[in-house]
Amino acid sequence: MRALVTGGAGYIGSHMVRTLLDAGHDVTVLDDLSTGHRDAVANEARFVQGDVADSSEVLALLRDAKTDAIFHFAAKSRVEESVTDPRRYFQGNLTATLGLLEATLDAKVGAFVLSSTAAVYGTPDEVPIDEEHPKRPVNPYGETKLAIERALEAYGRAYGLRWSSLRYFNAAGAYHQVGLGERHSPETHLLPIILDVARGKRPAINVYGTTWPTPDGTCIRDYIHVRDLCDAHLGAVDFLRKGGESGAFNLGTGRGHSVREVIDAARRVTGHAIPVVEAPTRAGDPAILVAKVERAARILGFQAKRSNLEEIVADAWAFMR
């Protein structure tokens, strides 16, 4: 398979590139390096620095590479920033992806896999959350991803585009053996922030709210190893290329861990005390977000293999230390 990975210099995208190469596929990476890292792209992949919104350039690239499938990771993804600068998100996510889809259709690419998010659901009515749960995003980031999903649905009906939207819950972990892991700037994800405390880069970890309606009073999230996510993408594109129906899938483990549980796991793995500062709750933070994962298991045959919390933390720590 000849694959284009947009955002392939970013955290999840670079892991996807490595997964595709390890499976014997031909890979081209398109990334503007606004947040990604050139050295995260495997040497065996072809790298093109460019903008996914540039339909004519992307079309030329797709035709030149004879692309069979697109894995679309390029996006703006900081929830808080999307609230303060929504224009950047509607342009950088929605408008840019519509440009990419123009080139996708014109080049007659056979399969399109979207990196989506549990943020399309908003605050859940019940957990675990299945794919039919009402979609009520509470921030522009989630709104843009939902709008892209709706465009995919419409393009599929009208033009025959074959697509899969994969709604991540909390991606974490690293493929430290090949030098890949999280390098966001600024860092907003819980686990690398906790591990920064263990590394002496931060004095303590802020815990936002300790009176949530959960067993230990802190928020619960569904953490999935980044390498498991990438395996699911391979399963999704294989399904599409074999004639499977387009659609959306949750990617998680179906198990939740509280903030305190993640901190305790990090203490065990690192041997560091990791001081905690209790802070007020943040507006818009749901108490519990856990995926219902049966659909991906039933249709794609996907099951998380590396998403034990201790393994996720240990892999992230091996990369960061």
Rank of each mutant, 00 (worst) to 15 (best):
A248Q: 07
R260K: 11
F71I: 00
P213I: 00
G156H: 03
D26T: 12
H15G: 08
S307A: 09
L190K: 02
I312F: 15
H233F: 12
E182G: 01
Y155A: 02
A291I: 04
R87V: 07
K66Y: 00
A304H: 07
A40K: 15
D264Y: 10
Y141M: 02
F71H: 09
G92T: 00
D26Q: 13
A60P: 02
H25D: 15
K135M: 12
R157W: 07
I288Q: 12
T117A: 13
A266T: 06
G156K: 03
G8T: 06
G179V: 07
I288H: 07
L191K: 03
R78T: 01
V138W: 09
A204P: 00
P203S: 11
E143H: 13
D68N: 14
T218Q: 10
L20E: 03
V29L: 08
H176Y: 15
S34G: 09
R282Q: 14
Q177M: 07
F90M: 05
A232E: 03
P215F: 10
K242W: 09
L100N: 02
I70L: 08
S185T: 08
I288T: 13
E102F: 03
G284L: 07
S116C: 10
S55K: 00
K76H: 11
E261W: 12
T144L: 05
P186H: 03
A248M: 09
H257R: 12
D54E: 07
T104V: 10
V207L: 08
T211F: 09
D315K: 08
E132V: 08
P213C: 03
V83A: 08
G99H: 00
A158P: 04
Q177F: 11
H233E: 11
D39C: 09
W317Y: 08
